[in-house]
Design a protein around this nucleic acid. Sequence first.
DNA 1: CATGAATGAGTATTCATTCAT
DNA 2: AATGAATGAATACTCATTCAT
Lengths: 202, 202, 202, 202
Amino acid sequence: MTPRYSETNRRQARKEVRQRLIEAAIQEFAQNGYDGANVNTISVAAGFAKGTIYNYFPSKKELMFAILGESGSAHFDFIAEQIREEDDPILRVKCFFEAGFAFVEEDPARGQVLVSTLYGTHSEFKERLYQVYQPMFQLVAEEILAPGIVQGVFRQMDPADTSVMIMTFYLGTASSVDTSGKPWLSPGKVADFVLNAIRSNQ
Amino acid sequence: MTPRYSETNRRQARKEVRQRLIEAAIQEFAQNGYDGANVNTISVAAGFAKGTIYNYFPSKKELMFAILGESGSAHFDFIAEQIREEDDPILRVKCFFEAGFAFVEEDPARGQVLVSTLYGTHSEFKERLYQVYQPMFQLVAEEILAPGIVQGVFRQMDPADTSVMIMTFYLGTASSVDTSGKPWLSPGKVADFVLNAIRSNQ
Amino acid sequence: MTPRYSETNRRQARKEVRQRLIEAAIQEFAQNGYDGANVNTISVAAGFAKGTIYNYFPSKKELMFAILGESGSAHFDFIAEQIREEDDPILRVKCFFEAGFAFVEEDPARGQVLVSTLYGTHSEFKERLYQVYQPMFQLVAEEILAPGIVQGVFRQMDPADTSVMIMTFYLGTASSVDTSGKPWLSPGKVADFVLNAIRSNQ
Amino acid sequence: MTPRYSETNRRQARKEVRQRLIEAAIQEFAQNGYDGANVNTISVAAGFAKGTIYNYFPSKKELMFAILGESGSAHFDFIAEQIREEDDPILRVKCFFEAGFAFVEEDPARGQVLVSTLYGTHSEFKERLYQVYQPMFQLVAEEILAPGIVQGVFRQMDPADTSVMIMTFYLGTASSVDTSGKPWLSPGKVADFVLNAIRSNQ
DNA sequence: CATGAATGAGTATTCATTCAT
DNA sequence: AATGAATGAATACTCATTCAT
């Protein structure tokens, strides 16, 4: 009967709180893994009381799903945008690794959550992750590899298989960090390795 | 005084029990991850009562350490033995992936435990794993890459870095299985990709 | 100064909202019991937001008290009105069970709340219920049994004790329903049983 | 490999602990109802630590089921044994109420749990209770009412319906206690009421 | 050595209630 | 008066570990 403070403000506030919770959750999951993570800690770390998180996510599992979804599309958007600024397939490969490494470096926790989920034991999460990363696999296959093959700068290959290998390689290398958090390998080196593998040798 | 024989028998029996426990533990860890694994379940699956496992391992953590040590050397021995039967660096690369994939296929649980630990969040385990895998990195660098570079069949490169990339690639691809447990990629395809990346182009 | 009309309207509106809340609460309590009931759900089921109910009842407990009071007098009024239309004590007994069963059948949720409270564990509620049902016990004792004894159609007995037995019997039988919600026993059968028990045998 | 302390002792000990837990649980459920009961409190009241109860019952719900089963058969055995010592149907009715009231008086908590379950809102428990009380309904119908009808001391009636009424009456009256815990009605009065209702009037 | 009962710290989740708007 | 976000106490249940037998 009585309206309260503007519907839009309310929505906006909810979104922000939700985002804060997701970010706190990513830190916690990155540090302790899904099973080791403490939901109450997440809520408190985000600046709320224990129970608040349940006003936003019905369960720990759904919270994780939300993170996977959000991360997948953020990851894709970040990389796709930069790749599409290049035309040359070779530059796109370089750009792919540079953008990819940058993404992980900017938010290492997110990267950690993604790989540990990918190689972890919770099949529901893995399956969701594959769904969510489908666009990225396609991006590599269709907007990097296929054009390069057509143009003759890449050797003949199955773009789908190769896309899987490149993604595997990317995820493995970008998230391999030493104890200080620095990645062991530079995007340049990794890109060179991959380019050597796929370039046609004229 | 106990006669010598019974002493030896006892030692032998202990070893066998220990091994059975380790194998049961690998299954459990593979299925549920370290945090999700249940120590009692492991003991029972090995054919003992709940408490027995604590006569062999002082804690869940030490049990995990034991598995990592055992798996690392088993993995290394299995691969090293086969590689050393070849002389040609290129064949050694192919052999490396074939042996590696075979190892994982023969004992997928062990493979799962290794990758999930490698990309997991328990830094103590990760560190131990790096230690344990040191010989494997060296094997690739010194017994595959270095000779190939010297012989001119591989391009100039830093064997250490490249070894890391190859291992990353191997672990990622060998343990990427679809829901039926079949790996997505064949060792041949992966080996070819890597060979293209490292061969010198005369 | 507020004009008189709007004041009355406001009172009226409050009453209606209160009633809607009570009815929603009866459904919820009937379905889930007092402990299992969810206050927010009640408010929402009544068509309001979660918090609204607290503008009408200071606590879950007070809400329950309100229900008990309201139900008790509704129950009494419903039955008393019909009984008093009969003069003959025997007909009054029959009428009592018919009216009683009808009341429960018309609003089974209310019936359920009453019995589950009566036989439940919350002594505060039980005590309130006894208070509230005092008039009903008196009705049976003084307006059904006592006249019948005086007229000689009922045997000599303690009207108070017998009233307790009859009420117990009524509540137990009227609220025993099978899974489809149909009562197991008809008011006729139950009334006959009771009449046999109290009739004088000339 | 090594046996431990005699299997039979073990079994015996487990049984005793289980029984202690059940008894503590009955007290707790009687006092607070199923929803209000605290599982940890039960375990502690039985003289164990919080977790112990879960070594005996997989969940609160299963604990409740165990209580219902145990109580149903204890109740039946207690009453059946005494009834069968009488031959006369009329004495059996008296005996039924005396034994029934005695059962409840000896262990009022058990009685409270039974009625509050019977009139409560947990349909799973109610259904189990009906199952468990089936033998008691039969006892009344077949070993009290039917013989009396045949012998002509009870009037013609449907033994099944009447059995339901008698049980309803019994449960309602036996468990109606005032605040001091004394029942409002004596078994004698209740039995007389019932006998009047069912006796044939020669 | 093997056993399995007991332990109790730890955790996800629920929900009555408050209160700023 | 109505709203719904925030709160935090409360609780069922898990499981690594201990230890008497």
